[in-house]
Design a protein around this nucleic acid. Structure first.
Length: 346
DNA sequence: AAATCGGGGTT
DNA sequence: AACCCAGATTT
């Protein structure tokens, strides 16, 4: 039996029942695909439900404030997805009268929609035979065909995309694309794949040659750099604190945080005294401070390991823009801050 | 081509 | 600790 036929048969028996599989509404499919970028199904599911509930149509999303969208996205990570999602919703609602682009080529014009996502929407919603190549597809194809080109190289991207294009069932591209991803996600897993019950066992290169553990090949990325973050949690006698909105290019763009001082190493008491005395918003006032955490809280991101201290600083009055602590949960914050807020007794 | 952008889960 | 996830964008 040919590859696609066998795969789709496997899918019809083994597929999970997921909410975005019961619709071809491009708004819903688009939402699900953005949420699922570099995100496992179980992590994305509650966010998908929340977005459908809060923004039932692309118009509802378009008229929302970015702050609302970011708040709903809080905890999911890769926040440019939320900003691009919002910008694209405005584009579809305002420039396209709410009608979603219906071809791969036009879908690519949406911010945050790249090759994978355009292919997914075009095939799932509009039956266009555009192959999806996500992490699952790389793994399935590299093992089955014994391809050792690094999947995260330009050469690999083209090679696997071309192969997927040859394999796709032109008459049912949606089923083929979803099937190959689902097969990679729940059977041809990265570790301990279920080869003993695999319908491709006799014809799989990696299984026949005992190379399951060596495929796919991936170029290793650089190790994460250490950073030292000191958040200044100011509290005045009226129960106000200070949150600032992050700007610029780095992580957590447009999210809120306590005033941040980055240091070159973990600050001790003496080091913090130097920092706090340079805070001009204290301007001569009496203050007292304590370190919330005994050891730095290590927050691991893909490219940075953040060694974090929360310094609690009590003062009589705060100058500048303050917020009442009871409103602090209205702001979109990185989960590192969110966890602190949940655990700290303001 | 390489770096950046999160957070959670598995091994 | 290393690796992975329904990747996209910037450098």
């Amino acid at each position: 039996m040919i590859f696609s036929k066998k795969l789709i048969n496997w899918y019809s028996v083994n597929k999970r029942d997921l909410p975005w599989r019961n619709t071809t509404n491009p708004y819903h499919i688009w939402l699900s695909e953005i949420i699922l970028q570099q995100t496992q199904v179980n992590q994305g599911l509650p966010f998908y439900d929340a977005f459908i509930t809060n923004f039932p149509s692309v118009f509802d999303l378009a008229v929302a404030k970015e702050s609302e969208v970011l708040k709903l996205w809080q905890g999911l990570g890769y926040y440019s997805r939320a900003r691009n999602l919002h910008a694209s919703a405005k584009y579809v609602a305002n420039d396209l009268n709410g009608v979603f682009p219906n071809t791969y080529k036009d879908l690519l014009k949406l911010k945050g929609v790249g090759d994978y996502t355009a292919s997914a929407i075009a095939s799932f919603c509009f039956n266009e035979a555009t192959p999806v190549v996500d992490g699952n597809v790389y793994r399935v194809l590299s093992r089955y065909y014994g391809i050792d080109t690094p999947i995260n190289s330009s050469k690999g991207a083209k090679e696997f995309k071309d192969l997927a294009h040859e394999l796709i069932d032109e008459k049912q591209p949606s089923a083929f694309n979803q099937a190959i991803m689902e097969f990679g996600a729940i059977q041809c897993k990265p570790k301990n794949p279920d080869c003993e019950v695999c319908v491709f066992q006799e014809s799989c290169f990696a299984f026949r040659n005992n190379k399951i553990g060596e495929l796919p090949v991936k170029i290793k990325s650089a190790k994460a750099k250490k950073k030292y973050f000191n958040f200044l949690v100011f509290i005045d006698e009226s129960g106000n604190t200070i949150l600032e909105q992050r700007e610029g290019k780095g992580i957590w763009q447009n999210l809120f945080q306590f005033p941040l001082v980055e240091s070159n190493s973990n600050l001790d008491t003496k080091g913090f005294e130097t920092v706090i005395q340079s805070q001009d918003l204290l301007s001569g006032q009496d203050y007292s401070w304590r370190l919330y955490n005994k050891e730095p809280i290590v927050h691991k991101l893909s490219h940075q390991h953040l060694y974090t201290n929360f310094w609690i600083v009590n003062v009589k009055t705060l100058k500048g823009e303050t917020i009442p602590v009871e409103n602090i949960r209205d702001y979109a914050v990185p989960i590192l801050i969110g966890n602190f807020i949940e655990n700290f007794n303001f």
